[in-house]
Every structure is written in C-alpha cells, then in structure tokens.
Design a protein around this nucleic acid. Structure first.
Lengths: 197, 197
DNA sequence: GCTCCTTTGTTGCTTAAACAACACATCAGG
DNA sequence: CCTGATGTGTTGTTTAAGCAACAAAGGAGC
C-alpha cells in the first residue's frame, strides 16, 4: 500500500506484528460475544494464546487496545474498499464518506456496551484517519502543507459530523442520495484554494 | 479430554503450542490451495507468520509436518465426534468406524497430489490412533495388556482395511448399512477373550 | 557442460514472549 | 467488619522465536 499509516510503519519485529494480530482478532471475537466491559485482560490473553504479561507489553490496558482496535478496524475497512492507497477523485471522496457512514452505524449497534467513552474513541480515531488520508490527497496535489492541514481538518470534522447525523436520522434517507448531496460541500471545503478538477 | 495422545502430552510451552497450531493451520490452507509438492517450507513459514528457522525447530522437513498434520487432523475429527475420551460401547465402535471411513474418503480426494507415500502416511497414522484408542478401551475393561495389544492391533488393521475397501467400492453401499454389517466382525476381534457385554 | 536462481537445512547471537511471584484493588457474602 | 476470590499491573529470570549468513542441493535455460 502506498499510504501507510504513520504509526506502525516500516519493519516491525514479526513476533510483535503477530502478537498484535492475535490480540486484535481475539478482542474482536470477544467484543462480539460479550461486550466491552465484560471482557477481562485474562480473557483476551487466553483467547489470543499469549501470556497476560505480554498483553501489557503492548497495551497499557484494555482501553488502549480498544482505541488501537478501532483504528485498525477502520484501516482494514478502508483497504477493503480499495481506498487508502489512492489519489483524490470525486469518486474516492464519495467512497470515503460512505465508509465513514457505514462504520459509524456499525460501531453504533455493534457494541453499545462500553460506557459513553466508546463513541468518543470511535470519533477520534476515525476522524484522525480520515484527516490523514485527505491530507495525503491534498499534498499529492501539491497544496501547501499548512493549507492542506486546515482544509483536511475541516473536511474530516464535517464528514464525521454528517455521517453521525445520517446514522441518527429517522427516517434514514438512502445512503447514496445523502452522499451525493453532501459530497459537494466537503469538496468545497477541501478545494477552497485550488479550485480545479 | 481423558484419553490424551501419548505424544504432546502434559504441559508444553504455550509458544510451542501456538507455533505448531499456526503451522498446522497454514499447512492445511496451502494443502487445499496448491497440493503437497507445490508447497515450500517458505510458503508455510510465511503463511504461519513464523520464521523459516522456527519451522525447522519443530519439524525436520515438510514430510514430517504432513505426518504430524494427518495425526492431528484425525485427532480433531475424533474429538468433534465426541469420541476419544470415551469408554467402549457398540455405538462408539460404530462411530469410530464411520470416522475412519469418512477420513479415508476425505484424504483420498482432498489431495491426491503427494506421491504414493501419501496414502501410506494416512494409513499409518490413522491405524496407530485407532489402535491406541481401542487399546485404551480394552485396558479400561481390565483386559491384560498383551492381549489388549493383540486384539486392538488386529481390529485396527481390520477397520482400516474395511474402510479403504468401502471407500474404493463401486457402487458404494450406504455407510450406515456397511458399518452395521462389519461392526460385529470387529467386535469379535476385540472381544475374543472377554465375551461379555 | 555451464551458469543463475530458488529452496533447503544449519548455526551463533539477539530479542520478544512466558513464567512465577508480587502488591494492590475490587467486590460479594458470611 | 473481614475473608476469599478474582482481576490488575509490575518485575527478573528463563526460554523460544527471529535474524542473518552460510554451504549445499536441485532445476531451468542457454
């Protein structure tokens, strides 16, 4: 992939990579089975076939793992939709918005059992990644860094906000139509300076 | 489980256990995809997320892994059918025969691409385990060891031979009927001395 | 025959994971 | 209240897995 996440870059000890994969998968399974609070670190370690102390070598606690997992889940979602290693285009922007909408709904009813902090975590991680990706797009199109910062930040917040709005709205309009409607708004935020293509 | 396989007993370093699991699964996947000869040790190591040298720390070569895998696959088959931790009964004996028949057919067309040695390996491993299990049954019923050896050996060979015969016979009679027909033969082998129950 | 390339086994040295043991927090029940 | 049980973090020591580099065995193609 061309757009590698800033964290977890380059060469990482394969044992570390594998261990995190194991923890990630185990956590995902448990999350689906029991809900967040009911999960203990022991559960995770057992399921992942690792020692409990090893868990703490990678994450301070299960909340940190939750955060990491949200980020990874969203990353994988992006990769599966062939985004993340892409350039800017209207189509990719719409796809990105769709991904965020889906992810927000998913995380909404996937595990409502994680205290009020859950939504905040999802929001933070997803927004950060959306912003990074769009920043990457803009720099690729040679927008000056500080402008790209501002534009991508604004657009990321807007996308997340609109996604949440859609997810909560009753009745829910068809996603396609909604995205068609809002993507020009986001585009205008992104392209405030360079208005071509 | 009450009837633990003689190898791989008691407490084994969890890393070893996990590594072997990873290798076992990776090998199973590759076997389904490419066939035995096409698989390299590198493939297995890559798929299992382990170092190639680690593979050699566990198995001399891929043939040894094949042998190990056959044994494990059959073990798991037994456990799934709730055998292996059981006492002798007519029903369990029939279930055992059914398992062997299924396993022989499976391994027959699952990967025909492993030289002529493949069948021999399956045969050896399966027969050994069938024999061990029945020996366990007999000793549980306080048959003297040397008698149990002989009886279980004869029965194991008979079961495997009859399973192979069934798998190759055309047209194949219904498995249920076939097992009903042959299980008394096996039973007579097992119970040659103690003819009660 | 001869390369070039891939795969195979093998070997010190390095590093991450396992363990056991610890002090501490939390909570249900007598 | 206290007691037993369970989960949390942390630490030093031990052990398995990773790495890089090696020699050697096979193939494929010229």
């Amino acid at each position: 992939m061309l757009f590698q996440a800033p964290q977890e870059k380059e060469k990482l000890d394969p044992r570390v990579k594998r261990t995190r994969n194991l923890i990630f998968r185990a956590f995902g399974e448990l999350l689906a089975e029991k809900g967040f609070q009911a999960i203990t670190v022991q559960d995770i370690a057992y399921r992942a076939e690792i020692n409990r102390a090893t868990f703490y070598a990678h994450f301070p606690d299960k909340y940190a793992l939750l955060q990491y997992s949200i980020r990874r889940a969203f990353e994988e979602e992006l990769q599966q939709r062939t985004l993340s290693a892409c350039h800017y285009s209207e189509e990719n922007l719409r796809a990105l918005i769709v991904t965020v909408c889906d992810f927000v709904t998913q995380s909404g009813h996937h595990c409502k059992a994680a205290g009020g902090q859950f939504d905040a975590l999802v929001e933070g991680q997803v927004r950060a990644q959306v912003q990074e990706l769009m920043q990457f797009w803009l720099k690729q199109r040679s927008m000056p860094p500080d402008e790209a910062d501002i534009a991508s930040t604004a657009a990321a917040w807007a996308i997340y906000g609109l996604a949440q709005h859609w997810a909560r709205s009753k009745p829910q309009p068809p996603l396609d139509a909604y995205v068609q409607r809002i993507s020009p708004l986001v585009r205008s935020l992104l392209m405030a300076s360079t208005l071509s293509d």
